[in-house]
Design a protein around this nucleic acid. Structure first.
Length: 260
DNA sequence: GCGACAG
DNA sequence: ATCTTGTCGC
């Protein structure tokens, strides 16, 4: 038998969630819109090499949801992050920021519009969660760098994407029953799941951002669904940023459901 | 060239 | 994302 005493510290950082290099590289400065998508695409290709899809390396005690709210004809955006107890789903802390975005919405480049603001809210948090759920895709993206992946690399935290619509790939509709799942494939590769969070309701699209694997992303989604189409982290973050928006004096979205 | 296209 | 009217169902 092997009785060798091994060191308690890993000999490689390859599978660690934390990557300070990537964090410093991608959180600042934000790429500004100059009418050319080239620079953003180049950064996505660089970010792709830093993605870590190893299993989540810690127990999930705190889970956060992040989202933004904005007006169609205004550069002002309201970004917010809500930290929840992953077990009870009760709110632990919230942080928000009102700022302006320097990038337009372009399918495939959403993160350059939202991440800078989300990072400001992230820095305000007193309690950092074990993982963050973003309103958008993770690696279920043409270059695997959706908003969840970009934010995870920049903030140095494990992330998953939970989107309401497809961006890429092919998939079969999951069965009508609640909790049904199918895989989405892009260029012959599995990129995530199509998950029926509620019976008979349009499914949501789940994929890891970075710092976790596909199974982690799906199990975290299942664990945080509370009877609504969207999981609590994302659902409450959405509610939160709209509250911030109203408190700032703007008109709430037309679809605004009753508060509280 | 044409259709698709997260928030 | 936001805008937007009515409609179907619990």
């Amino acid at each position: 038998m092997d009785t060798t005493i091994r060191p308690t510290t890993p000999s490689t950082t390859k599978h660690l969630v934390g990557n300070t290099v990537a964090s410093r590289l991608f959180q600042t400065p934000p790429i500004l819109w100059k009418g050319d998508i080239g620079e953003a695409k180049a950064q996505q290709e660089l970010m792709e090499s830093y993605i870590n899809l190893a299993p989540l390396n810690k127990s999930l005690t705190l889970i956060a949801g992040a989202d933004i709210s904005c007006n169609k004809n205004s550069p002002v955006i309201y970004a917010g992050i809500v930290v929840l107890n992953a077990e009870t789903l009760e709110i632990i802390e919230r942080a928000s920021v009102i700022t302006e975005t320097a990038f337009p919405y372009i399918p495939g480049y959403l993160s350059f519009r939202e991440v800078p603001a989300l990072l400001q809210a992230w820095q305000k948090l007193t309690t950092k969660p074990d993982a963050v759920m973003l309103d958008g895709h993770g690696v279920m993206h043409p270059r695997k760098v959706g908003v969840a992946t970009h934010f995870g690399l920049a903030a140095n935290v494990a992330t998953l994407g939970c989107a309401k619509k497809r961006l890429i790939g092919r998939f079969d509709d999951p069965a009508p029953a609640q909790d049904s799942v199918t895989e989405l494939t892009y260029q012959g590769e599995m990129r995530g799941y199509v998950y029926r969070s509620r019976a008979g309701i349009k499914p949501i699209f789940i994929s890891p951002g970075t710092g976790m694997n596909y199974e982690d992303a799906l199990s975290i989604t299942r664990q945080t669904c509370a009877g609504y189409r969207l999981p609590e982290p994302t659902r409450l973050a959405h509610q939160y940023v709209n509250e911030i928006r109203v408190a700032h004096g703007e008109q709430p979205p037309t679809n605004n459901k009753g508060s509280v």
